[in-house]
């Protein structure tokens, strides 16, 4: 057993077992490490973290967290296994209040502990407090992202996975979200995120995986990869996508 906090080995997954989108991807994340997954559209980035989160079935390969096999764990068991996932879209319940969204995030905890954790979330994200009893549909994109992250942190996870946390946000909000994630990492939480905004994401993360056509393409320390001619040509240069 290796010493990595999180490890995925040769994961094969997709929306249907007979049509895999991910063809044997491996990656790892260490404690208090921030890792980015980038790649062109259709590379299988989102599919990969959905599969890890248990939202999509894994047909072969294995996933471990802190040495524990979580490959076949049902989606609702992930929170208790200390892994949190923030989807890209529809990541808050718009018909529920902010407070109810947070209470739901603590569903896997006993009630007293849940209330205590929700209280802590308001301390960490004071901006949410003023909307406590408002429906989440009144929140802006950036506020929703904040609520989604606050919700994911309620169970004190070892690893938080985010699918394009910067999507649809203004440049100012993007740097705010990334700074928040960076703070989390400094407090000991590991972050694994999929990003289209490759340049900004690589600037804040320790390491980066580049996926293409459902396979590992390149991987390495973010600062080094940012200088890699191939990566620059495909993702960061003139041909790079910017949202």
């Amino acid at each position: 057993m290796s010493g990595h906090l999180f490890q995925a080995n040769n994961v094969v997954a997709g929306y249907r077992p007979d049509l895999p989108i991910i063809h044997g991807v491996s990656m790892h994340v260490d404690a208090a490490e921030m890792v980015t997954i980038i790649g062109p559209n259709g590379a299988g980035k989102s599919t990969m973290i959905k599969a890890i989160a248990g939202v999509l079935p894994i047909s072969s390969g294995s996933v471990t967290l802190a040495g524990k096999d979580i490959t076949r764990l049902p989606t609702h068991g992930m929170a208790a296994a200390s892994i949190a996932y923030v989807p890209q879209t529809d990541n808050v319940f718009t018909t529920l209040t902010i407070n109810e969204n947070l209470l739901l995030g603590a569903s896997s905890l006993p009630k007293a502990k849940a209330l205590e954790q929700v209280g802590k979330a308001y301390d960490k994200f004071p901006a949410l407090k003023q909307y406590r009893d408002k429906k989440a549909k009144v929140l802006s994109g950036g506020q929703r992202q904040m609520l989604a992250v606050a919700r994911a942190l309620l169970t004190d996870p070892h690893l938080i996975m985010l699918d394009e946390p910067s999507a649809g946000l203004s440049p100012l909000m993007v740097s705010d979200v990334f700074a928040r994630l960076r703070e989390l990492v400094e407090s000991g939480v590991s972050v694994l995120m999929v990003e289209q905004n490759a340049k900004a994401a690589m600037a804040v993360s320790h390491r980066t995986y580049v996926l293409a056509e459902g396979r590992n393409r390149v991987e390495g320390v973010s600062s080094a990869l940012a200088q890699d001619p191939e990566v620059i040509a495909i993702y960061l240069g003139a041909g790079g996508r910017k949202r």
Binding site: A53, G54, V55, P74, T75, H76, G77, M78, A79, A80, Y85, P87, D90, N91, V92, F93, T94, T95, L96, L104, G105, S107, S108, R151, T155
Partner: peptide, 10 residues
């Protein structure tokens, strides 16, 4: 409202 997000919430 959202079955998948409910499961993700545990």
């Amino acid at each position: 409202e959202n079955p998948t997000l409910a499961r993700v919430n545990g």
